[in-house]
């Protein structure tokens, strides 16, 4: 059983040593191991290949594999930093590390900026913000007229685009978030502090493996 488990881990594409991942993230080794339990659960929900496919990510987020959502797509794309269409274990842990309560605020601010920079131009453009507000309205019960949406976007831009060039750069974004810290509230997941309680079984598996 132990040998099988050990071989199985080595064969998983993208599997990385928990001690290395722990050294590069706010997680401890046992927390990384617990995250592997969560990763296994998500990555085997549709295709059991040790990788999180977009449908599996959607299923984990929404309990519905077909539910498309602009923001979930953006999160998936940022987690998939190799840009190969799947999330590997190392990518999963490093990306979730940004959401750890102890992760540097600067990392959270930058991550949120990249999230909202839909077209990877290095700026949040007005059209992107407009598109994101429409996407949010689509998924919620909030009904606002086009005029009101335009006003909301204009007002936000007039507050955030301090240079007045019609786009928000990273410096403007940092300044805007410092005045509105609630904007990165969703970049912190309190669950990540209790991950070993939520997903403890890997630790037990490791002990079996070590004694083999």
């Amino acid at each position: 059983m132990g040998c099988f488990h050990s071989k199985h881990l080595r064969q998983i594409p993208g599997y990385e040593d928990p001690t290395i991942l722990a050294s590069e993230t706010p997680f401890t080794v046992s927390e990384v191991e617990a995250l592997y339990e969560l990763f296994k659960k998500i990555s085997s929900s549709i295709i059991d290949d040790g990788l999180i496919h977009k449908e599996e990510f959607q299923l984990a987020l929404f309990r519905n594999r077909n539910r498309r959502n602009l923001f979930a797509d953006r999160i998936f794309d940022l987690f998939d930093y190799k840009r190969n269409g799947v999330i590997e274990f190392g990518e999963f842990v490093r990306s979730l590390g940004v959401f750890h309560p102890n992760a540097p605020t600067a990392d959270k601010v930058t991550f949120a900026f990249r999230l909202y920079d839909l077209r990877h131009t290095g700026y949040i453009e007005r059209e992107e913000l407009y598109e994101m507000v429409l996407a949010l309205l689509n998924e919620s019960d909030l009904a606002l007229s086009d005029d009101v949406v335009e006003m909301i976007v204009d007002k936000t831009f007039s507050d955030a685009d301090t240079k007045g060039d019609g786009r928000i750069d990273l410096d403007e974004w940092k300044e805007f978030v410092s005045k509105n810290p609630s904007l990165i509230k969703n970049m912190t997941l309190p669950y990540l502090k209790d991950i070993t309680l939520a997903f403890p079984s890997f630790v037990l598996n490791t002990e079996v493996e070590d004694s083999d």
């Binding site: 969560l38 959502n69 923001f71 979930a72 998924e139 969703n186 669950y191 991950i195």
Partner: peptide, 26 residues
């Protein structure tokens, strides 16, 4: 807040797609 004074980023940060806590629900 009236809709016009809403912060657009505040609004979009409420998206379910950005709420990763559901990944941890069993």
């Amino acid at each position: 807040a009236t809709p016009v004074t809403m912060n657009a980023f505040e609004l979009i940060s409420k998206s379910q797609g950005l709420n990763l806590s559901s990944l941890f629900e069993k």
